[in-house]
Design a protein around this nucleic acid. Structure first.
Lengths: 115, 115
DNA sequence: CCCGTACTACGATGTTTATCGTAGTAGGAG
DNA sequence: CTCCTACTACGATAAACATCGTAGTACGGG
């Protein structure tokens, strides 16, 4: 009925994003992998959940995306049947300058070391 | 007897420190408070567990210090009856350049905002 | 209207975590 | 040796978390 703008998803406002929640969200390998993937898409990059191949089930994937969204790390919007995901780089950089980049850098470095 | 150097504590080597573990260790408010405290002591700063007033019981405090130590965030040594704690800044900076500083900066910023 | 794709909600399970209190050990001071 | 201080180990508990499978809903295309 009417023009229901596709049901909306709960996101914390920029000011509501908590450092502890962000660190917790990033402290899981699966979620870090998602963030790395989104970061590699560049500035405006967005991707459906299905674009990221994780070695876990669909329902668990949904769970991890939700953790990331609720922590304020990613933005999720319904676009037709897909759900597009994007890093909230602007918000994170504004709140915690340099944090995201050093985490991504640390991850890349560790990955290279451990390879 | 001989010169038993007071019983030793398990610490990960520099190369064994995992980013995920560090992020997880830092994602708890109590532990972040400990790290902030130690960071404020400066380069060579070290302090006994009892120097940090946490709003939790002694046994829980012990637990958090252990999590930090096992993640490679702090170094603990017995010094007489006390157990001295120090940030492993050198190791962290070498492995994850900028990470610790941006977390501490982010924490300070958030604290100022939320005050 | 029916179907397929994409994602979710729910309920279950096993693991980890934060927390505590009590009882203990280790080391320095008397 | 005795006592005090500092910290730990253990056992318990309640909450949170990662994971799954099944059953469902939302949307676009035929």
């Amino acid at each position: 009925m009417s023009t229901a703008p596709t049901r909306a998803l709960e996101h914390p406002e920029r000011e509501e994003i908590r450092l502890e929640a962000v660190l917790h969200a990033l402290s899981d390998p699966m979620r870090l992998q998602v963030v790395r993937f989104l970061a590699e898409l560049g500035e405006e990059g967005e991707a459906p959940c299905s674009a990221i191949e994780l070695a876990i089930s669909k329902s668990t994937t949904t769970h991890h995306f939700r953790v990331l969204r609720e922590a304020g790390v990613i933005n999720q919007v319904y676009r037709g049947t897909a759900k597009m995901n994007a890093l909230r780089r602007d918000d994170l950089d504004a709140l915690f300058p340099g944090l995201l980049d050093s985490v991504l850098g640390a991850d890349a470095a560790q990955r290279q070391r451990t390879d």
